[in-house]
Design a protein around this nucleic acid. Structure first.
Lengths: 244, 244
DNA sequence: TTGCTTTGCGTAAAATTTACACACTGCTTA
DNA sequence: TAAGCAGTGTGTAAATTTTACGCAAAGCAA
């Protein structure tokens, strides 16, 4: 097998590339945010009613075009800020979707970002903006290819939350172990043994006992904890172990 | 905290979007491939001498601009084919890099893809194309932001190979357990116990004993195996387990 | 034939995960 | 005010998985 095929011609001068970059090969680029929240023991995702006639009755992710002179991550933060007013939140790039006909307005390649926010921190005027927190188990038939994007981000979240302390971004700063377990059960769609869950987290030793207890619960209140990010950063395990 | 900020104005009509897509917000998009190979018990990456004066003495990843009417994945396969002549190889999108000044020719956002190929399958005329297989531990100071892209892809490979049977793409179809272990040790940069490694893989039960033995080795030859992809697809585990 | 290297197959101890029990606290209400 | 209820807090024993090694046998080289 030979490598020469097509190789020489694919080496270009700076001038050629500049020409291509400036004229013929330009594509619109967007960011779409999958914004997860947690409320009433349910994992939610923030959707907006599509403003395009073609998808009139459908919900879609929050997105916008990237500006030409804007860093990719900066665009994601801008869009999240514009849509929710939030800064300083967890935001992570997930995947880029670039099928030719994915957008009715023409060729638009979109970079999906995933965000986890504490739903208590923004009781926002949802309805007048046609925004809605959807139960994760009830998200179907989104506009564009947003269903595929959402599914990808949700699977990624399920995976990442088991290996990294992302979940705490969805909880209040002070939380009970029960709330933490409800969060994991909601995201992973499973039930776990309460005693083993507790044992697991205590063994990791990243929870700080605040010596406070829950208020206004109709039963024995549980202790409140916060996550020790500093300790986590120092001690986090290096992943070694073959398993599939 | 309010959501109204900037929200209304960010809702656009199809016409507005079409205008933006067609004119003002267009950006050049490229694909860069991090092509891994395995040879002489070393993990290698395929690099090309940069053709741009600015990076004259530096090595860079293999990449090219995406065409306007070309699916993203299709572009990645095209570029891989143009550079190596290979089709039907493992290819996976890793991450998109979009800092404003990452490319000297102007604004170019690049989507990084990772490829694993069997280095035996293409003894290609490397030198005349200024291509070179670099030892993974000797990759520094690449052109553009390619060092960052490479590092990201390498870390991703290290993670993925532990959870999915990707490694077999780097080996011959028939391989010995020793070769398999050498591969894992090279990628993960660790030493493993030979007996436990063997036990681990036999327990997974995805290896097919070919009843053949190695040839031309200067010691007792080992048995040869191939990977049972069908069985893997049926039995692969669903990942549940909190650990960080 | 001997020595060398590497394969192939064990087993015992250590660590982790799983399954499950029971007392206690605080609220509710009869 | 006492009994019932719901959920918290703490174990412990069994099962499973991981780790750390030992040793015989195969094939090559001298």
């Amino acid at each position: 097998m030979s490598l020469t095929l097509g190789n020489q011609k694919s080496i270009k001068t700076l001038k050629t590339i500049q020409h291509e970059v400036e004229t013929i090969n330009r594509i619109a680029l967007s960011v779409d945010c999958v914004i997860f929240g947690f409320d009433e023991n349910k994992l939610k995702v923030l959707l907006i009613r599509s403003d395009l006639k073609k998808f009139q009755s459908k919900w879609s992710l929050l997105g916008d075009l990237i500006h030409v002179n804007e860093d990719l991550d900066a665009a994601a933060y801008r869009i999240l800020r514009q849509r929710t007013g939030l800064k300083d939140v967890y935001l992570e790039q997930v995947e880029t979707f670039g099928n030719i006909n994915r957008h009715p307005a023409g060729r638009v390649v979109t970079v999906a970002y995933c965000s986890l926010i504490n739903i208590q921190h923004h009781k926002l005027n949802i309805f007048e903006n046609e925004l809605h927190w959807h139960d994760i188990n009830n998200v179907t038939d989104l506009a564009f290819d947003h269903q595929q994007i959402f599914d990808t981000c949700y699977r990624r979240l399920q995976k990442r939350i088991q290996e990294h302390p992302l979940g705490f971004n969805l909880l209040p700063k002070k939380f009970s172990l029960r709330e933490l377990q409800n969060l994991y059960e909601a995201i992973l769609g499973t039930k776990m043994d309460r005693r083993n869950f507790r044992k697991k987290f205590f063994a990791m030793d990243f929870l700080i006992d605040l010596d406070e207890i829950e208020q206004d619960v109709p039963h024995r209140p549980g202790k409140l904890y916060k996550f020790n990010y500093d300790k986590y950063e120092k001690k986090k395990k290096k992943w070694v172990g073959i398993d599939f």
